[in-house]
């Protein structure tokens, strides 16, 4: 009798394991598929290429992980990224500040966007979606106004140290990867190990219960938006260093992938909550798909359409997986 009784739970736990790791199976299949289509997919140079191309999406994804962990969403991460890039380039070009000051000013630019979001969402109680959508439009418009219609601001004579943020290396490891690694570690410590991280998850999972427990919910949400803005700005610094210019509205390109990576990552977590390793997996998966499709020599536009479909499918898959588990 006891053996019979334990059978369904065994099947159940097997299914749960598949649900959690099902996405990894998909990732594995994709890797095999791309490698068969083009063996150079697995070459070290290409793998480094994938990782280094994933740095900016990863940074934006980390910012989004924090905000989604709080039960909110931030559609203006791209604006924060652009502001980081714009503030730094303008400080370097027009004011000739040293590179480290430019970094600080760039991060302050992204922080500003986060502060506005926090104000709108926490103070004025606007839903995070509509509030950050408004900031998204205002931020885009401000960039157009500032650049007289969206032309890039380029600055060829970047200080070497600043340029190295994107292209330099330290003991053979690209600096941009080091920056991303540092942020991954920092976010991991914040969300998975720190006292604040516990509070963040409590607010995101059951905001009212967190409030009853006496947590300062408003302040925690505000912190999340501000921190996300500052983080996204780091992505903007790297982007501007890479191209040696500020490209208005460039940040918006990262928004959808960041959201997708967070939800894919959340579906892999035991409790279905956003988490840093999951986001990392999600970002690398999307970067890999983009790279693999490129290597297959597909038309640029076809690639866009395919990656859109893969995005929808991956999200749908992760939602189904998550639902099956709960």
């Amino acid at each position: 009798m006891s053996r019979l009784a334990s059978l369904p739970s065994l099947v159940g736990s097997g299914r749960a394991a598949f649900a959690r790791h099902g996405f990894l199976a998909v990732v594995g299949l994709a890797i095999v598929g791309f490698a068969v289509a083009n063996p150079s997919f697995l070459s070290l140079a290409n793998l480094v290429n994938i990782v280094s191309g994933a740095v900016i999406p990863l940074i934006v994804g980390l910012a989004m992980t924090l905000v989604v962990a709080l039960g909110a969403i931030d559609l203006s991460v791209g604006v924060a990224l652009d502001f980081g890039s714009a503030f730094a380039i303008v400080a370097l070009k027009d004011y000739g500040v040293p590179w480290y000051l430019a970094v600080a000013i760039g991060i302050a630019g992204g922080t500003l966007v986060g502060v506005v979001n926090a104000l709108v969402v926490v103070r004025f109680r606007v839903s995070a979606f509509l509030g950050t959508l408004g900031v998204f439009f205002i931020g885009g418009s401000l960039q157009r106004i500032f650049t007289n219609g969206g032309g890039p601001i380029s600055f060829r004579r970047l200080p070497t140290e600043y340029y190295d943020l994107a292209v330099g290396d330290l003991y053979g490891i690209p600096i941009r990867i080091l920056i991303a690694a540092a942020l991954v570690v920092g976010y991991f410590l914040l969300l998975e190990r720190s006292a604040l991280g516990r509070k963040i998850h409590a607010v995101g999972q059951q905001s009212r219960a967190a409030r009853v427990a006496g947590l300062p919910v408003g302040a925690i949400v505000a912190f999340g938006f501000v921190c996300a803005g500052a983080t996204a700005a780091v992505g903007g610094l790297i982007a501007s260093a890479n191209l040696r210019m500020f490209t208005p509205l460039a940040g918006n390109a990262y928004l959808m992938d960041a959201i997708a990576a967070v939800f894919i990552g959340a579906s892999m977590h035991r409790d279905g909550r956003p988490n840093v390793p999951g986001t990392l997996t999600g970002v690398l998966f999307l970067a890999m798909v983009a790279n693999g499709l490129n290597l297959m020599g597909l038309d640029f536009n076809l690639k866009d359409a395919l990656s859109g479909v893969i995005l929808v499918a991956a999200l749908a898959f992760s939602v189904i997986q998550h639902r099956r588990r709960t």
Binding site: K199, Q205, D271, R273
Partner: peptide
């Protein structure tokens, strides 16, 4: 159920939630 506990979190996390410091 709605206000008392963060149901998805562990018993330990819930006990410590208000006094994490």
């Amino acid at each position: 159920r709605n206000d008392g506990l963060v149901l998805a979190q562990s018993v330990a996390d819930n006990i410590n939630l208000a006094s994490l410091d």
